[in-house]
Amino acid sequence: MPDQTEPDDPAAKTEGLEKIDVEAAKAAAQHRHHPMVRTLGTVSELADQMQLTTVCGAVIAGGILGGRADIARTGLRMMAAHVLANVVKRRIKNRLRRTRPEKMVDEQDYHFEPGEAEGGHETSFPSGHTAGAVAVARIVARDMPALSLPVTAFAAMIATVQVPRAKHYPIDVAAGAALGLAAAWAVDRLLPGTRHHSQAKENRMSDDATKSVSALFETREAADYAIEHLVQQHGLNRADIFAEPEGPGNTAGNRPSGGDANKGDGAEGAALRGGIKVSVDVASDRVETVEGTFREMGGQDIARR
């Protein structure tokens, strides 16, 4: 049988996956004039380079003016991911010429080859709208989990509508999504969000198997001095340090000191039935620092658990 493929059919010039890609784009392009596709396409322009830059800048400014450093940092991370994705996208587009689907359908002209594009109609690969939208959405989802679903859905809409509106082929969209995810991944490592810092701190404490170190001090004065030394000199969190009587009753230590010594050896002062126990919850890599401080400050019965 003679070949029934039209000689001018762009799909006839391609093979394998590329052929499937071109045919899928050609079929989807039939709907490019549908009101819904045109409306969603207009909305998707929010992910164009200048518009997305404006959105990121607005988040940064809002965070600064509102005194929200976390919001400003998220905006900065959004901007970094967007710019990184755009820079890489532009480098690729400058080295690969691919006819956009609308030109392929309207003029039966198609090529996908190395070379510098001669106009916007040859910059189909990869999808810049998709790359920017996915990169920014990923950052927002990481920093603000409550917004994860809506921003991810919005990015998915932006990516998906590029095919029926005849701006990109499915492979262009897939490549743009991969580029956006890679850009967000790079920013996560180079410019972590505040949430990442908190999680990292929690993970370090968990991984380090937090230890409790305790020591007994004869006076409240000595115990307080040790606590202040740990906080001021070694940067420990005061909330992780606890002071309590050694026994079940109230006590100011087992011998008078400071103000107690000036009141008849504490005869009329607080009870002196036992010592003051100071305990510290600390990561294992700082246990020796705490123990050394306890010894230096006169602590006794130093123990860890």
Rank of each mutant, 00 (worst) to 15 (best):
M1S: 15
D3I: 14
E6N: 09
D8G: 13
P10A: 09
A11N: 02
T14F: 10
T14K: 01
L17A: 15
E18F: 08
K19A: 13
I20P: 11
D21C: 03
A24Y: 06
A24E: 09
A25V: 04
H31C: 12
V37L: 13
R38N: 15
G41Y: 05
E45T: 15
L46M: 15
L46K: 06
M50W: 11
Q51M: 14
L52P: 09
L52I: 11
V55E: 05
G57D: 06
G57I: 07
A58I: 08
A61C: 07
A61T: 11
G63V: 00
G63W: 00
G63I: 01
G66L: 02
R68T: 11
A72Y: 00
R77M: 04
A80S: 10
L84N: 05
V88F: 02
K89N: 14
R91L: 10
L96E: 04
R100G: 05
M104P: 04
Q108L: 08
D109M: 00
D109Y: 07
H111S: 03
F112Y: 05
G115N: 04
E118V: 03
G119N: 06
G120F: 02
E122K: 08
S124W: 02
A131W: 01
A131M: 05
G132C: 04
G132K: 01
G132N: 05
I139G: 02
V140K: 00
R142L: 11
M144R: 06
A146F: 07
A146K: 06
S148D: 13
L149K: 10
P150D: 10
P150R: 03
V151T: 07
F154Y: 10
A156S: 12
M157V: 15
I158D: 06
T160W: 08
T160F: 10
V161W: 02
V161C: 08
Q162P: 01
A166I: 02
K167I: 07
A174V: 14
A174L: 09
A175S: 15
G176Q: 03
A178L: 12
G180F: 01
A182P: 13
A183W: 10
P192R: 04
G193Q: 05
R195Q: 09
H197W: 09
H197M: 06
Q199T: 10
E202W: 07
M205R: 13
M205A: 11
S206W: 06
S212K: 05
A215P: 13
E218N: 06
R220T: 10
H229F: 04
V231R: 01
V231W: 00
Q232N: 12
Q232R: 07
H234C: 10
H234M: 07
H234D: 03
G235P: 09
G235V: 00
R238S: 08
R238L: 04
A239I: 03
I241M: 02
P245K: 00
P245N: 08
E246Q: 13
G247A: 13
N250Y: 12
T251K: 01
T251F: 00
G253A: 06
G253F: 04
R255S: 11
R255L: 07
K263L: 11
K263N: 11
G275S: 02
K277S: 13
V280F: 03
D281G: 09
S284L: 08
S284H: 06
R286D: 12
T289I: 13
T293F: 01
F294N: 01
E296P: 09
G298H: 03
G299L: 00
Q300N: 12
I302D: 13
R305P: 06
R305V: 12
R305M: 12
